[in-house]
Amino acid sequence: MMAQTELDHDELLSRLHELANQSLGLWDVPADARARLINVSENATYLVETENGYKSILRVHREGYHTRRAIECELCWTEALNSSGCVTTPGIIQGRDGEIVQSAELPGKLGARMMVMFEFVEGEQPDETQDLAGPFEELGEIAATTHEHTIAWKKPEPFERLVWDLDAFYGPRATWGNWRDGPNVEAQIRAVLERVEATVRIRVSAFGQSEQRYGLIHADMRLANLLIDNGNTRLIDFDDCGFGWFMYDFAAGISFIEDDPQIPAMREAWVAGYRKVRPLSDDEEKEIDSFIMLRRMALLAWIGSHIDVPEAQALAKNFAAVSAELGEGYLSRMS
């Protein structure tokens, strides 16, 4: 099997494009359908379309990130959210064999990849250049609704998903790597972030993992993962969903823009939206600061371990320095 790490980014994308198009026959799609890359991060996402207007979305999973069962559990949750009517998610298209997770490879070129096809959803992402208070209030409502659902939902057994606990961020086998290996983590920056890690560990451990604070979460609930069409909002991309703290969903919502001047207003709006659906104590609201830093340092690790991805390269130059500035502010507020 050809490992992903043996290929440079452009060659990998070329082979994934070939795999995606050669695999379309696994689903009942028109014979003239073609797959076009629209996004690549952990996975490669393609728009499948024909000249006559057919559209669907194909997700080709990265190598070694999830097991088949973990993907099935993700899709089971999205279908449960949909069927309950509390949150709308894209429909899943079964393969010709009736399975929702398919697998294919390019012998000698690319090892087996798991794939899922979704119904195409019309809509646009919220405009992140505009006032974001309104969209974040809705995002808070959606987050709270998913949290209420997961507390009550009887999960299928065995249920397998990522675990976003302290070890996943700071442990020896952290999911996205060690933040110390991120780009431009110089001695002074590292010293600040070491203090931040120590403080986050203490505070989040004390915060605890009760059923009302910790459970199955989306874990990547950014505006980029909302699609709005004629007033209807759909939540997409559950690929990172797993077990974590509910307040982490806000931190994930401001990924990469934690220093934006709008953040205080966005946070206030998110909390207001959240409280429309479920209670949120003052202590829980205050601890959002810890989860923001937890996420920010995870993103620093992500950039370091994904430096071949254009998005990571674009962020690399100043991300560590800004993280340290944010960390200084966090430490002063929490002292």
Rank of each mutant, 00 (worst) to 15 (best):
T5M: 12
G85D: 07
A301C: 13
V309S: 06
S205A: 15
A133C: 08
E284G: 09
A80H: 03
W27V: 10
S290F: 07
C86M: 12
V185S: 02
Y274D: 05
Q188G: 13
E328W: 10
L294V: 07
L81G: 11
N184R: 12
T78W: 01
W245H: 09
S332N: 14
R68E: 14
D181P: 10
G140K: 01
S323G: 14
P156T: 10
N318K: 10
Y214E: 07
R195H: 10
R36G: 13
L106V: 12
S103P: 01
L75H: 06
E284H: 02
R34K: 14
A168M: 04
L81P: 10
E194K: 07
R201T: 11
N230C: 13
R34P: 00
S335L: 13
D10Q: 13
L294Q: 15
I263E: 00
D181W: 01
D32C: 04
F246T: 01
A251S: 03
W164S: 03
F246A: 05
L223P: 00
A112I: 13
G177Q: 11
D165A: 05
G140W: 07
T129I: 11
Q188M: 12
M115F: 04
A219L: 01
E11T: 15
L81Y: 07
G327T: 08
V48P: 10
E197N: 05
F207D: 02
M293I: 13
T175G: 02
D32E: 13
S23Q: 10
L300Y: 00
Q188A: 15
L81I: 12
A80V: 09
L227G: 06
R62L: 05
S290R: 02
G91A: 11
L166C: 09
L193G: 06
E49P: 06
N21W: 02
A70F: 00
